[in-house]
């Protein structure tokens, strides 16, 4: 975990510095220049932050889903702790992705929110996280809470892909990668990145993912300690 922690700090610091400081020029030469992407210009720097955050929000949801599935198979309460910790972090990353995307949309499309298919899909992801916690707070018994929230996350897990993979391609949108984008409509937006840009981008993906796993580990350890503590308190 120490390596994960250090690596995530190093990578995110690198992405912060490189993503903001490296100049964007029409004909990039060498390592310390990024190309200008037509239609995005300097706003393209958001790729290094917004995309990894959105990716981590989805990753957190999948981890929550996986541990929900494992809980149903094994009835081990530790999997529920993993699941809820992951969902809480996912909610945070999802909010950050929404905010960064919204600020970017203000400068690129002219308004903070305009119900582009991608914006709709991240809004639904937020609602799923909200509903997950609303459900958990409405269930008193620990075992039923763990079981039903696992079931709910799995149902949400099969309906959410309709948003992420089907809708943006069926309905025309403004987001890179939607139908009507001349670069082609694909699940992952095809951004014309050069080698150095890719390095920063994938460092961002890896850095934020590692940050997520580190935070997840911390939260699970806290949950485990709390559980041991409450057992010790009982006579």
């Amino acid at each position: 975990m120490k390596i994960v922690k250090l690596l995530s700090i190093v990578l995110i610091s690198f992405v912060l510095c490189a993503g903001i400081a490296v100049p964007m020029v029409p004909q990039p030469h060498g390592f310390f220049q990024f190309p200008i992407i037509p239609g995005l210009e300097n706003k393209a720097r958001n790729i290094f932050f917004h995309v990894p955050l959105a990716w981590t929000a989805v990753l957190a949801f999948l981890v929550a889903l996986w541990h929900g599935f494992r809980y149903l198979r094994t009835q081990d309460i530790m999997h529920d702790h993993q699941s809820v910790a992951s969902a809480g972090l996912g909610l945070m990353f999802c909010l950050l992705a929404t905010i960064t995307g919204s600020i970017w949309a203000k400068f690129n499309w002219g308004s903070f929110w305009n119900w582009d298919p991608r914006e709709t899909s991240i809004f639904i992801l937020l609602l799923i996280y909200g509903a997950y916690f609303a459900l958990r707070s409405a269930l008193a018994s620990e075992e039923i809470r763990a079981r039903l929230s696992a079931v709910y996350s799995m149902i949400a897990g099969v309906t959410a892909p309709f948003f992420v993979f089907v809708m943006p391609r069926l309905f025309a949108g403004l987001h890179p990668g939607a139908r009507g984008d001349e670069a082609g409509s694909t699940p992952v937006a095809q951004l014309h990145m050069t080698g150095p840009m890719r390095i920063v981008f994938f460092s961002g993906l890896l850095g934020f993912s590692l940050l997520f796993f580190w935070l997840l580990n911390l939260r699970v350890r806290v949950a485990r300690l709390e559980e041991q503590h409450s057992i010790n308190l009982q006579p």
Partner: peptide
């Protein structure tokens, strides 16, 4: 049916599922 606050919870839970 297993939870408390059944009436409001249904709307909250079903909307994200029904949205697509």
């Amino acid at each position: 049916a297993k939870a408390q606050a059944k009436g409001t919870l249904y709307t909250v839970l079903s909307f994200p599922i029904l949205a697509p």
